[in-house]
Simulated scan of single mutants.
Amino acid sequence: MSMRRTAAAAAFVFLSGSAFAAQAPSPSADSSAALKAAPAYCPPVVETFLPGEYYFCIGSQAFAKGDTLAAKARMQDAARWASKPAQYILGLMYLNGDTGERDPAKGVAWLAISAERHDVAYERAFLAEFAKLNPEQRKQANAYWRDLKKDYTDDVAGRRAERRFTAGMKDMRDADFAGNDVFLDGISPPQGGEAGTYEGGGGNHGSRVGGGQRAFAFIRKMDKMHDDYFHGMVGHVTVGEVTYGGTVGELASAPSH
């Protein structure tokens, strides 16, 4: 089974009918089979809090439809918000030549970015593909990696995404403090009556809105998504400190934590 044929599998799952979370793409020898579970709908409201989640969802939909150019564009949007699955998929797209541009050095550079949190699957993929590069390609990969670092590593993209999440959640936390309900387009609350609909997936869908959703219930779900999304990030409260060297070559030999 080739690492290069890994595709964006089930990108999002709905949690209690109210939110969704990104999952790491799973290896598959058949890309089309892996993409059958691509999400039918990506709630736009999530872009307010975790844009990397939202754009990865949209990119996965595009990939499933065979629109690789749109998929690449949305994955790059997600990557800019520190989505490690998106950065991983971009690496595979360059390795595979999915948009007509096969560039192993650039693919390995993206895999290196995706592996900076020492996720086992991403790290294994990076090391395997790095080992296949010749000396000139490794030199190119180093140059690409240094350029990508300016906008896509956790020091930049991760901090950007955390600031976005904090700002987006401010109103929710204020509502929780006041004991208020919240109404979020496209996200069903975990409880309530059948009164109400939301716009999503091309039309109105029963949302069980009723009297709305308690702010604290939404906050709990979003905080869980936040912890999953930023898991392994250097300086994040849930992990210890991990550092990489300055080149792809040093990155390959960095110890796992």
Rank of each mutant, 00 (worst) to 15 (best):
1 M>K: 13
8 A>C: 14
10 A>Q: 15
10 A>F: 03
18 S>V: 06
18 S>R: 09
20 F>D: 10
23 Q>F: 14
28 S>V: 09
28 S>P: 00
36 K>P: 03
41 Y>K: 03
42 C>Q: 06
45 V>F: 04
47 E>S: 12
50 L>G: 02
51 P>G: 03
67 D>E: 12
69 L>H: 14
71 A>I: 06
72 K>H: 09
75 M>R: 11
78 A>L: 05
79 A>K: 03
82 A>Y: 15
82 A>G: 05
86 A>N: 07
95 L>G: 04
103 D>R: 06
108 V>M: 04
111 L>C: 03
114 S>M: 01
118 H>Q: 13
118 H>D: 15
119 D>V: 04
123 E>V: 03
125 A>V: 11
127 L>C: 09
131 A>Y: 02
137 Q>W: 02
141 A>V: 09
142 N>K: 06
143 A>E: 07
147 D>I: 05
147 D>G: 10
147 D>S: 13
148 L>Q: 04
150 K>H: 09
155 D>N: 15
157 A>R: 06
164 R>H: 11
168 G>R: 09
169 M>W: 02
175 A>S: 15
177 F>D: 14
184 L>A: 00
184 L>Y: 00
187 I>S: 11
187 I>P: 01
190 P>S: 10
191 Q>M: 11
197 T>G: 05
201 G>K: 07
203 G>R: 01
203 G>D: 05
204 N>K: 13
210 G>N: 00
210 G>T: 01
217 A>K: 11
219 I>T: 07
226 H>T: 02
226 H>L: 10
231 H>D: 15
236 H>V: 01
242 V>K: 03
254 A>L: 08
256 S>A: 14
